[in-house]
């Protein structure tokens, strides 16, 4: 059956906005990355691959931001996935308690990053923060830290905040995935005399792989996009120890007025994200089974 031509009109408003405010800027990021544009003057020159060369060979801060991003990503992906999975496994059944608790754990997800940043700035505050006070109450004074001011640990403090922020969301995704596993599978495993670990490894895990793929991929992308949280909590400091690629692009462009160079970093950023997403889907897909 033929669809009338008026169908093309349905794409018009969305496609128009998407082209102007998304596709065009994406392409022009690539264009500006080969220039020395400052963002405001009319004149700029083409500088070939100078910006890319600078990013990879001459800019030690950029290298540091990639390292910070990776540290942040690994801590968040590992902790958040494990916490979400462990709690999903122990609250699978729908009872009044589990439904209430899931809603509670999920709660931080609906807050703005700025709100979460303020809450955790207060928790981490070296003098009146509740974390250090709590530690001294239970006699663990020696663990007290300047959580956001110490360049060695600040990025991990931010990672913990991110886990608090989004673990509940991942937990729900796992619960949905686990509840979709047919109960008969477990009954068969029980009859066959499988141990708890064997049941997890052979029944739960392969069937869980699709949700795990989603959680890990989503968490990774989220950890690269954590601009708001970092910007509001540390602004990239102290001494660039929490500067991630996204906040660095912002400071190079809007504080350093080097739009050309910032565009080159944006392009590299885009390639990194595409590459990681691709790798994860490839790696986790191989573990996928369907029944």
């Amino acid at each position: 059956m033929r669809t009338p031509k008026s169908i093309y009109l349905f794409f018009l408003p969305g496609l128009l906005l998407y082209s102007v405010f998304f596709l065009y800027p994406t392409v022009s990021a690539l264009f500006y990355s080969f220039t020395n544009w400052d963002g405001f003057s009319d004149a700029f020159q083409f500088v070939g691959i100078d910006n890319y060369q600078r990013a990879f060979t001459a800019d030690s801060i950029f290298r540091k931001t990639i390292g910070n991003n990776l540290k942040f990503m690994f801590v968040v992906v590992i902790f958040q996935t494990l916490v979400a999975l462990a709690f999903a496994l122990i609250m699978l059944k729908n009872t009044k308690t589990t439904i209430f608790l899931r809603a509670l754990y999920f709660f931080p997800t609906i807050l703005s990053s700025v709100s979460v940043a303020f809450i955790w700035a207060f928790i981490y505050d070296p003098s009146l923060g509740i974390l250090n006070r709590g530690l001294s109450v239970i006699g663990l004074d020696f663990l007290a830290q300047n959580w956001l001011g110490n360049a060695n640990i600040a990025i991990y403090s931010l990672a913990i905040t991110q886990v608090w922020f989004h673990a509940g969301q991942m937990l729900i995704i796992f619960v949905a995935g686990l509840q979709a596993i047919p109960q008969e599978m477990y009954e068969v495993a029980k009859i066959e005399g499988a141990s708890k670990w064997q049941t997890f490894r052979k029944v739960t895990w392969p069937l869980l792989a699709p949700s795990a793929t989603i959680v890990v991929a989503y968490t990774t992308i989220q950890s690269f996009k954590a601009f708001d949280l970092v910007f509001a909590m540390t602004g990239g400091g102290p001494n660039y120890s929490t500067e991630i690629i996204a906040t660095y692009i912002y400071s190079v462009a809007f504080e350093g007025y080097q739009f050309g160079y910032a565009s080159a970093i944006s392009v590299i950023f885009m390639i990194i994200i595409a590459f990681i997403t691709f790798l994860q889907f490839k790696a986790l897909r191989s573990d996928r089974v369907s029944y």
Binding site: F11, G14, L15, Y18, V20, F21, F22, Y24, P25, T26, S28, A29, Y32, G39, I221, F224, K225, F227, I245, A246, I249, Y250, A253, F254, F259, A262, S263, S266, V267, F269, M270, I273, A274, T277
Partner: peptide, 24 residues
């Protein structure tokens, strides 16, 4: 093709295009 074109947008974080978007 249009579906792919639109979903590609999910892969690109807003921070990637903030510089050209600002001048636009």
């Amino acid at each position: 093709a249009l579906f792919v074109l639109f979903t590609l947008g999910m892969m690109v974080p807003a921070q990637v295009i903030m510089v050209p978007l600002y001048s636009l």
